[in-house]
């Protein structure tokens, strides 16, 4: 049984087709990536999956439940977590409060009261190693720390699917390595499917994904294991454009 299934999902903005009839599946506990150059429609796809806006056409199932017309908060209750490219923790709330909000309103939110949520937050603060910043407002943290808070906030929601938008954008190589092993660690310990969104396929190879979906101009280009996608001529063309001799010919 697929955890998430998208069928012919399409989204238009005015005359522009941002996502063009995408069909794919994501399995439980899978580590995968949606790859594509800037403007390929990755963020729109993410927004469609977790319900920031509705799809114009097509259907989305989550754990065999048709969620096509569900608003974002209901999808979150079902077990979809999300982080943003530019981290958006609640700036004047403390780190603990930020993560507790995730626990309170996430998939188990109905049974979790404020005290319990705060305890859960402490647990995730340990995991991300920000204990010393527990009571500080999240707005004052460094970008990498904000990113960690956001991931912890999403994890506290106890999701079965975590959508990570450019988890490593703007990080230095050392932090990237740390983040990759952290993401793998989460997958192994929490057993959730993690979909990362990355602009360049090389990042996905760094261990972030076992399978990639490459998007190009809103449509699905390839859906295959990462190793194979790397050498797929269609993928190469998207990233390098025309073969070198053609570029020469055009001047």
């Amino acid at each position: 049984m697929a955890l998430l299934r998208c069928e012919n999902v399409t989204k238009r903005f005015g005359g522009l087709v941002a996502v063009d009839s995408m069909t794919f599946e994501i399995d439980s506990g899978e580590l995968m990536a949606i790859v594509g150059p800037n403007g390929a429609g990755k963020t729109t796809m993410f927004n469609l999956i977790n319900g920031v806006f509705p799809a114009d056409e097509g259907k989305i199932w989550f754990e065999d439940l048709d969620v096509t017309n569900f608003p974002a908060y209901k999808r979150a209750h079902l077990g979809m977590g999300r982080t943003f490219q530019i981290p958006r923790p609640f700036a004047s709330a403390s780190v603990q409060e930020n993560i507790a909000i995730g626990a309170m309103f996430g998939s188990a939110g109905a049974e979790i009261n404020v005290e319990r949520a705060m305890e859960m937050a402490d647990h995730y603060i340990e995991i991300i190693g920000l204990k010393k910043h527990r009571d500080k407002p999240a707005g004052g943290l460094t970008p990498t720390e904000k990113k960690l808070v956001e991931i912890a906030r999403a994890l506290a929601m106890k999701p079965r699917l975590l959508l990570m938008d450019e988890a490593m954008a703007g990080m230095n190589p050392k932090d990237i390595d740390g983040m990759v092993s952290f993401i793998r660690h989460i997958r192994d310990t929490e057993g959730i499917a993690i979909v990362s969104m990355v602009e360049h396929i090389m990042r996905a190879v760094a261990g972030l994904a076992e399978r990639v979906i490459v998007m190009h101009q809103g449509a699905l280009l390839v859906d295959e294991p990462t190793r194979e996608a790397l050498t797929d001529p269609r993928v190469v063309e998207v990233y390098l454009g025309h073969p070198p001799e053609e570029i020469d010919a055009q001047g």
Partner: peptide
């Protein structure tokens, strides 16, 4: 508090 600071993020966090 969450929706005051960032309504879109709040929605994604499961807040109605």
């Amino acid at each position: 508090m969450a929706l005051r600071m960032d309504e879109d993020a709040a929605k994604v966090m499961g807040i109605n």
